[in-house]
């Protein structure tokens, strides 16, 4: 366990080095969230009855999404893994006494946490003091907040094991190209549009997919769009998909490595 901790630590320190990147990310995400809310408010003005969630819920959804973007985004983390596979350097990783799957998992999580830590506080701080129509609200009670925290950790793990599947696809395609993986996950997890805005029949299916277990769940729990037993059921769905993709991922890793080793890299 100690080795994972020090891996985590070095990644974290490394992430902290990029000061300007953190400030820039902050501004970008803040401006992005602001524009999103403005766009939604135009639609809200046009037809409040057609709005599938409370406007204040949407505002919280957007700010939490921007503040914790790094935790849940399906892109831009753990690029080394794919390079290691494509270049064949993965054989050196095999020589280390550490499970590769676990290592990538922890590295990716560390990247996410270090980036999010730097960025979330200022965004949240500003989001709480904005004029009322843009202001982020606290969850209605402590129960909702704790559900959110559990759900956030699960969502981060789900999106990470999903990303690992994406990395491993490089064993077979030998390229970096995974845009479709990313776009699919971003869109169907409510990254572009919260899932309640999807047309009804489509939405029913999407709610059950593994993507719904990603950012969709914590963001909607925080904002109060999903609450009570629905929240518990939602976390259950997350854990289910986490287990499925984790088992599949580990199996795929074993298989891919065997293939790589027998082919001599």
């Amino acid at each position: 366990m100690k080795q994972y901790f020090s891996l985590f630590r070095i990644r974290f320190i490394n992430g902290l080095q990029y000061r300007a990147a953190a400030f820039a990310g902050l501004t970008t995400q803040f401006a992005w969230g602001f524009m999103e809310i403005l766009a939604f408010s135009a639609f809200y003005r046009a037809n409040p009855a057609a709005f599938p969630m409370e406007f204040s819920q949407l505002v919280s959804y957007v700010w939490i999404q921007q503040a914790f973007l790094a935790l849940f985004m399906p892109w831009g983390v753990g690029g080394n893994a794919v390079e290691a596979i494509v270049s064949g350097n993965i054989v050196y990783d095999l020589a280390r006494p550490m499970d590769i799957y676990n290592r990538w998992f922890f590295e990716t999580i560390a990247d996410r946490v270090s980036r999010a830590t730097l960025r979330c506080a200022p965004i949240l701080m500003v989001a709480f003091i904005l004029p009322p129509s843009f202001r982020m609200a606290l969850p209605s009670n402590l129960w909702q907040l704790s559900m959110f925290l559990i759900s956030a950790v699960s969502a981060m793990c789900v999106v990470t094991v999903y990303c690992l599947l994406d990395y491993m696809s490089a064993f077979y395609t030998m390229s970096r190209y995974s845009a479709i993986f990313v776009i699919l996950a971003d869109f169907l997890a409510g990254g572009v549009l919260p899932i309640p805005f999807f047309p009804a029949p489509f939405r029913k299916v999407v709610e059950l997919l593994p993507f719904a277990a990603m950012q969709n769940m914590p963001l909607r729990i925080y904002s109060g769009n999903i609450s009570g037993t629905d929240a518990v059921r939602g976390i259950g769905l997350q854990l289910f998909w986490l287990a499925v993709m984790l088992i599949f991922g580990k199996w795929l890793m074993k298989r891919s490595l065997k293939r790589t080793v027998t082919q001599g890299g």
Binding site: R9, R19, A22
Partner: peptide, 16 residues
């Protein structure tokens, strides 16, 4: 200058 260590890395966020 880049500095080693966790505390210094945090410090370098603000002054260099």
């Amino acid at each position: 200058k880049r500095q080693a260590g966790f505390g210094r890395a945090v410090k370098a966020l603000f002054s260099r």
